[in-house]
Amino acid sequence: MPTNDQLVRLGDVELCVETFGDPADPGVLLIQGGAASMLWWEAELCRRIAAHGRYVIRYDNRDTGRSTNYPPGRPAYALSDLARDALGILDSLDIDRAHVVAQSMSGGIALILGVDHPTRIASLTFVSTSTGAPGLPPPTWSSSAEPTPAEPDFDNLPAVVDYIVSWARREAGDSPYFDEQATRVLVEQDVARARNIASTLTNHYAQRFDGPAGGSFGDITAPTLVIHGDRDPLFPLAHGEALRDAIPGAELLVLEQAGHGVPRPLWDVFVAALVQHTGR
């Protein structure tokens, strides 16, 4: 569990933020995906990145962890508001420009930051995300033996934990790296610290998915790295390839035998690529 996190107030929103490393080092802002608190950027991974001379920031998006939440099914925000939250966190830490790492749904946040706020972005890294363009392959759930989890009773926390673990197992696909025991420990911590777990599991998918005002992926000017698992069942690898092709000069790192996300056995590969990318 976080030991030195803090609540940052941005207007009428509170966001829980935790930092690792020396504030004098280049800032790396980690943004998690849908329904995922900052705990999914695990503390050990953050420390490994910080050990290479990076000031690492992770935080709970609205409706996750200890940050502001809204009634289930009624999120009072859009994706662009979450992008402004990210900038507000940088402002609170006196960081003019940061390297932004965005996973899954938060790729939309990184897109808005990269297009509409380029002077604040030193580089972008997209992890397990997609352009959302028509014609890309659908999820490969049908080839998985893992059934679609049924939504739990949100008052039954053990059932909620089982539900989230089932989704994590499903998103790992046929990757050999899925560690159910470690995932369950993480999920139990996440559920225990959430202000409202029903909001966490509902509201990110009910928000308004707007985009940048100034263009799209082709208008990103920041150095960009795309990281994608070759066994991702939610966004098959073609999504990562399309994202690389859509952003001028972007590079693609394929994580072999990885599903959706960055599994622990590949942290060294991920950290090495991120340190190189953010050191330019």
Rank of each mutant, 00 (worst) to 15 (best):
T200I: 00
T200C: 14
L201P: 13
T202Q: 13
T202L: 08
N203I: 09
Y205R: 01
A206C: 12
Q207H: 14
Q207S: 08
R208G: 03
R208L: 05
R208Q: 11
F209C: 00
F209H: 12
F209K: 12
D210S: 09
G211D: 05
G211C: 07
A213R: 15
S216C: 08
S216F: 08
G218Y: 00
D219F: 03
A222N: 06
P223D: 12
P223W: 03
P223M: 07
P223E: 09
T224V: 09
L225N: 10
L225S: 07
L225V: 14
V226H: 05
V226C: 09
V226Y: 11
I227H: 08
I227G: 06
I227M: 14
I227R: 04
H228P: 09
H228N: 06
H228G: 07
G229F: 09
G229Y: 13
D230W: 06
R231A: 13
R231F: 07
D232T: 08
D232H: 02
D232A: 03
D232I: 05
P233D: 10
P233N: 07
L234G: 05
L234W: 08
L234Q: 10
P236S: 01
P236C: 10
L237A: 02
L237V: 14
A238W: 03
H239G: 12
H239A: 11
G240Y: 01
G240V: 11
G240K: 12
E241W: 04
E241Q: 15
A242Y: 08
A242G: 07
A242S: 08
L243D: 09
R244G: 00
R244K: 15
R244W: 02
R244C: 11
D245P: 04
D245A: 15
A246W: 06
A246R: 10
I247E: 03
I247W: 00
I247N: 01
